[in-house]
Amino acid sequence: MNKSTIALIVLVIGLILLPFIQDSRSILILMTQIFILGVFAMSYNLLLGYTGIISFGHAMFFGIGAYSIGLIMRYYEPTYLYFLFAVVTTLILTAIVSYLVGLLTLRLHSHFFAMFTFAIAGLFLVAAEKWRSLTLGNDGITFKIPDFFKDRVIFYLLSLGLLVLAYLFFRRFTQSPFGKVLQAIRENEKRVESLGYRVFHYKIIANVISGMIAGLAGIFYAVSLRFVNTSVFSTEITLDALMMTIIGGVGTLFGPILGSAIVQFAQYSLMDLAKVHWIFERWVILFGIIYIVVVMFFPSGIVGTVKTWFTRRNKQILGKKKPEGKKSMESSKADAMKNILKGEVDG
């Protein structure tokens, strides 16, 4: 067990104890949101950071999840059985949609995929708005949930559980041979193709997995609000995921979680500051600038940059004392991350 694993375990234990130490309701809700959108950003990162494809329509999977639970809870009964039914529905629907979208577009250049997903998500948004008899349009629907989920602390722990599971899943997944092929596609698609891998299949599977996990995040999001409206399909949701991923660290496991925490915590605290001076209402500017600076100067985001610093420092300290080993492996990994965005992605 290395240092970072221990640090993560300590962090998780700390987060489990958090609701018992302090009892501010708004902090608890904020943390829950951070966990849920962290999962969403992680699923986005699988595409952007690990496979090198950019989606403008990731909100559609989020929205499918949110609407599945919302509609089923409202029109059937808020029981555990129907809750499970909603989860299964979400997984099946997101799998089908992401498979079809991938089938149609993953052969094309990256910007076509971006625009195609943007269009599909736009169609979902329009459908949710216009199918008023079912969705009540932009007014949205409120719904009841099983009593178990109503308790804020329990739901907080459940969301944390989802986050930890998603983290472990992605860690295992990206280190698996399959994940390695995805990262190779990101680095040089043509070379992977010429090595005999069926790039298209790998991309589709990555898209399906990413979509299904985004759908799960959508379920949790809707349950946390006990309300769902068309905003879950909006481009802003996708852009949020993009921003969280970039700021935290593209192609790193922990980056999207950190990004989610930073973006939402800043939103939360800047909202209070808005009363002090109106300029804080325009916090998007601040984020936009940070975002541009990160893309331009720190393409590997916060986590990636810090990792590079650490490995560099370790190298200097250790000098020639330590033979080539784990550290140099890590540093080459960090270099690779830095190159994610720098290198030619589109052949």
Binding site: S110, V284, Y291, I292, V295, P299, L341
Partner: peptide, 18 residues
């Protein structure tokens, strides 16, 4: 680099819009 172009120009769009 298309992906970086998409991301950075989106950021510029957000800033200029705000």
């Amino acid at each position: 680099n298309h992906i970086r172009q998409i991301m950075i120009t989106l950021g510029a769009m957000l800033v200029l819009g705000e």
